[in-house]
């Protein structure tokens, strides 16, 4: 393959990493808007979705172009496949983060107090997972990716606790049903973000080893 292709591939990889950083930032701001009860910040976060969508399409177009023109193999093929899949997961993460920001606007008016501690913890854990996944992706770090993949259960446990708390609040207190549904939606979206971040770690494993570990224990 030509040096020209290697440079194009490197440019695309950097572009994908910039998109990852952008999505990470959107999640962080969405969580901040949620936890600090800042509707103005939530609105600003929502406006950033369009940029992610546009970038997702541009990255995908470039992957297809390079596949068509250069027919890469080996590590180059694996990198392009990984970029394409990570690209999709990043866009989905941004969508979920936007959903969190949407719900954050409502929860400012109707806080669901008993879930606050768990939601805060869930936000922290999910932000950490995404940060570590993006770092593993940037550094093509197999060990980190494998560790992320094996540490996903903490999110599931937190999510289960939040669902349980919301259910018990609904049974015992006069809370707003809308607020409880918002809290549930936030928790669900954060849990989905963790799943997508774990997918990114699995793509890093594929990139490094050629093994598809998805759907395996």
């Amino acid at each position: 393959m030509t040096l020209h292709f290697v440079n194009l591939l490197d440019d695309l990889r950097r572009r994908s990493l910039r998109m990852a950083a952008l999505v990470e930032d959107i999640l962080n701001e969405a969580c901040e808007a949620l936890l600090s009860g800042d509707p103005a910040l939530a609105r600003r976060v929502i406006l950033r979705d369009e940029g992610v969508d546009a970038e997702e399409v541009e990255v995908e177009k470039e992957v297809i172009r390079l596949l068509a023109l250069y027919q890469p193999v080996g590590i180059d093929l694996r990198l392009l496949c990984a970029i394409l899949k990570v690209n999709n997961d990043l866009e989905r993460i941004a969508d979920c983060a936007i959903n969190v920001a949407e719900r954050a606007k409502h929860l400012v008016e109707h806080p669901v107090h008993r879930t606050n501690t768990e939601l805060r913890e869930l936000c922290n854990v999910v932000q950490q997972i995404l940060r570590r996944s993006v770092q593993a992706y940037g550094g093509e770090d197999l060990e980190s990716a494998q560790a992320i993949r094996s540490g996903d259960t903490i999110v599931d446990d937190l999510y289960a606790r939040i669902v349980q708390n919301i259910a018990s609040e609904g049974a015992t207190g006069p809370k707003s049903t809308a607020a409880m549904l918002d809290a549930l939606s936030v928790a669900k979206n954060l849990e989905r973000i963790a799943d997508h971040a774990t997918n990114i770690a699995e793509d890093v494993i594929f990139l490094a080893t050629g093994q598809i570990v998805r759907h395996q224990q």
């Binding site: 393959m1 080996g74 093929l77 694996r78």
Partner: peptide
């Protein structure tokens, strides 16, 4: 299909990717 997606030897990798 294995050699062209995940060759084991770095020299194979370098050759098939045009390095």
């Amino acid at each position: 299909h294995v050699l062209f997606t995940h060759p084991r030897h770095p020299r194979t990798q370098a050759y098939i990717t045009g390095r």
